[in-house]
Design a protein around this nucleic acid. Structure first.
Lengths: 154, 154
DNA sequence: CCAATAGGGTTGCATTTTAAAACCAAATTG
DNA sequence: CAATTTGGTTTTAAAATGCAACCCTATTGG
């Protein structure tokens, strides 16, 4: 049967995955963050089928993660650019990249590639922090309101 | 044709998505973080088909995100518990949750539910930080080694 | 000016995945 | 010892995916 969707889930992670939780969408966002804007460039860089790319781009535009802009002077050339909502996925993408680098390093190892534009220093590992700015593990946390309304320990 | 997999992609985000990038896996990890350990509990809380849950749990175990432990005294009762690799997805899940809360808030709004176990204060928004600990946007960053080996601006 | 090519898609079709429900087997409960 | 719980596997239909083949609108080249 059809894939289950989570549009109306009370869980915001489920709703988020509804928008960017498939195999391609987050990779498209990633490449958009790297500067890719054109249909053909996405297609070649990702090796994605054109119809799937069409579908994903349209869905990302619908969800206001990307914005489609006409750039051909008098023709039909488009650019897909991140919206603020899309750029706001930056921590998600970086956290995922760092996780992948840590636990599934590339055979030819290129561990961390994001650097501060001003200083040239690598960015920190993305962590959850408490109000004092100290890194927290999952054990340092509890859930005030739960998925189902019942309070649970993390 | 079959879904394309990214096992050998040079992009660590692609490799990460290969392990937890489908609709269900990250939700399973999320619930595991909330304390769920049993097959039936995952099934009921997620509303997932049993065969899909079997498959996802097995894949997560294969990828060492979860560990399957026999807990029945002399029977076949199992618990699926997060490994260190799985717990390390904490920042990813929190970042995604915060993104979902910000951009797709639940109609009945329960904005942020993670709190410091010691102080009871909410956790900070997950951000990318430079070496000095200052939050960075995507514009503050450049890519030293790129997906394809060619340097690109972010 | 006309042909060739590039950008951005859409359409068909075969192959996988997914979801739901039925079925199963071991262990535990009543 | 029958019913139930846990943790699955099997079957079947509906979607999603990937590929190739088209299509239409510019722009380029000769």
């Amino acid at each position: 049967m059809a894939r289950k969707r989570f549009d109306d889930s009370s869980c915001s992670v489920a709703r988020a995955l509804n928008e960017v939780g498939d195999w391609w969408s987050l990779l498209i966002v990633l490449h958009a963050m790297y500067g890719t804007r054109r249909f053909v460039d996405f297609q070649q860089q990702l090796g994605i089928a054109k119809n799937i790319l069409c579908d994903r781009l349209a869905r990302l535009v619908d969800n206001e993660v990307l914005r489609k802009e006409e750039v051909g002077e008098h023709g039909s050339r488009f650019e897909y650019r991140l919206t603020e909502k899309g750029r706001d996925l930056f921590p998600v993408v970086v956290a995922l990249r760092q996780w992948g680098d840590k636990w599934n390093p590339a055979p030819d190892g290129q561990p961390l590639d994001l650097r501060d534009r001003d200083t040239g220093e690598p960015v920190q590992t993305v962590t959850v922090r408490n109000a004092q700015g100290e890194p927290m593990s999952i054990r340092d946390v509890f859930v005030a309101e739960d998925l189902d309304g019942t309070s649970k320990s993390a």
